[in-house]
Amino acid sequence: MEINKKSQAGSLESSDLMVYVEPFNEIKIEVESSVSSQHTEEIRSLILNELEMRKINGVYVKIQDNGAMNLTIKARLKTALLRGAKNGN
């Protein structure tokens, strides 16, 4: 999968997160979490796994987490990546 435009998904509501993605020449992940620094690392690792699984080599991902479950993080990331991979617009 190739990310060719900026996109985002999610919200800043409690139990949710904002995911921003944009094209980049390598993998860069930035995480802010309202929960804890340990959780920040867990999210980073989860994002990295998801990117590897989708064979994405170049993307900048920024996360603003507000206590989301892992399954929510995965869903929001998927939506943001699919939106960013669409051609046109």
Binding site: A9, G10, N70, L71, T72, K74, A75, R76, K78, T79, L82, R83
Partner: peptide
């Protein structure tokens, strides 16, 4: 699209 992804993941996990 985001609701579909979220609901699918909720049901799955």
């Amino acid at each position: 699209d985001s609701a579909r992804d979220l609901v699918s993941n909720m049901i799955k996990y």
